[in-house]
């Protein structure tokens, strides 16, 4: 399950314990759609202060690695594919 952090808009991934991480590697997995949908509804209601617009995505998970199935979600997980003017992103 993913969304964006309210505070800075960064991509957010929901851990299995219901907290939110910045790395997809920490994301919890759902094995069926109804459970995922229920969790999304719950998150949208209860975690709305911290997270904007949570929703579930499909991933391929193997050996601890989580790989989204679409180009869009792969780019969300890994960041822009091009060089940034200040790549470190810290200030």
């Amino acid at each position: 399950m993913t969304g964006n952090f309210t505070e800075d808009g960064a991509v957010a991934w929901r851990r299995a314990d219901g907290t939110w991480a910045r790395q997809i590697a920490e994301a919890g997995l759902f094995v069926d759609e109804p459970t995922a949908k229920a969790a999304a509804t719950r998150a949208a209601a209860q975690e709305q202060r911290e997270i904007c617009d949570p929703y579930g995505i499909e991933v391929h998970a193997e050996g601890g690695a989580i790989d989204p199935l679409t180009a869009r979600q792969r780019i969300r997980a890994n960041g822009p594919t091009i060089r940034l003017r200040r790549p470190d992103g810290e200030r």
Partner: peptide, 22 residues
């Protein structure tokens, strides 16, 4: 206020949510 309530307000001030950030 929720994101749903906030969205029209932020959009009126040029603030979008993109893939990785505002």
């Amino acid at each position: 206020i929720t994101e749903e309530e906030f969205k029209p307000l932020r959009l009126q001030n040029g603030l979008y949510m993109q893939l990785h950030a505002y």
